[in-house]
Design a protein around this nucleic acid. Structure first.
Lengths: 138, 138
DNA sequence: ATTCAAATGCAACCAAATTGCATTTAAGTT
DNA sequence: AACTTAAATGCAATTTGGTTGCATTTGAAT
């Protein structure tokens, strides 16, 4: 388990107080966070531009990855695979959105079978998004 | 193959000139369309509110379904299964986004494998989104 | 031809996210 | 420890994607 400082260093990012605070939100949550989630968690202490730019640099350096869950805001979650770096994400896991609590989780354990593409298509990456009720809400 | 008029009738929607025009864009395209795509195709002849509301009513009546492809705009594509109606979509197929031409296609033939959820999760729906190069761009 | 709910278009609005620019700060160098 | 500089930050303004309120028009059932 790295500290926020180590994690930033490992991905080539300068350590700042703001980045530490934002990164720790991800480390303490077990679900994907949107800008609004973060803004609420840090009690609106940071300018929104800073938060958005921080999310972008975290994503570009492979610390977090985008989670599509059909909501109007983009969400992000920590990359756990360790294999993520700049512009090379390795998140072949399943994203699960709970229809009751509206949280979206990364199910790192669920294996996604490799799909067979029709003739002529070349597959680079696949992502699976499922909905239902999470453990707490079932 | 239904005409646009028949298709609207079958889904309980009033036939209007605007709906005909918009629906025919979907029938002529083999890929998912965003508001901007449609606006360009019809040469900005309709108010954006009309287009957005038309898309919403098409979706709610089961004529088109939402396609998430990671782009900033929501896209839609015709429901081909025939099993779609109001608030009951049956689009268990794969969506494929081409990284070169940036079009997103419905691969109706590629079946989505049923995933095994971890203990405690209840699964309601699943959707698969893949990226790569399409037939034309390979 | 009449009727009326549904569809349309305009203006205004809202939410999410980005850009330009001046200021501050982290971290390497003397 | 002070110096330097590129990167990070914050404010204001803007852009983009989409929605709401309301008055007018239109499709299709009588």
């Amino acid at each position: 388990m790295s500290t926020s400082k180590e994690l930033l260093k490992e991905h080539g990012l300068k350590f700042t107080e703001n980045r530490k605070v934002i990164l720790e939100q991800f480390m303490s949550a077990n679900y994907a966070l949107s800008y609004n989630d973060i803004d609420a968690m840090i009690a609106q202490k940071l300018d929104k531009v800073t938060v958005y730019r921080t999310l972008k640099s975290f994503q570009e350096s492979g610390i977090i990855h985008e989670v599509m869950d059909g909501s109007s805001q983009v969400k992000y979650a920590l990359c756990h695979s360790g294999a993520c770096s700049s512009h090379h994400h390795h998140d072949a896991h399943v994203h699960f959105r709970c229809e009751k609590c509206d949280k979206t989780f990364c199910l790192d354990d669920v294996k996604v079978p490799l799909l067979q593409m029709p003739e002529g298509y070349k597959l680079n990456s696949q992502s699976v998004f499922v909905q239902g009720f999470c453990r707490k809400c079932s």
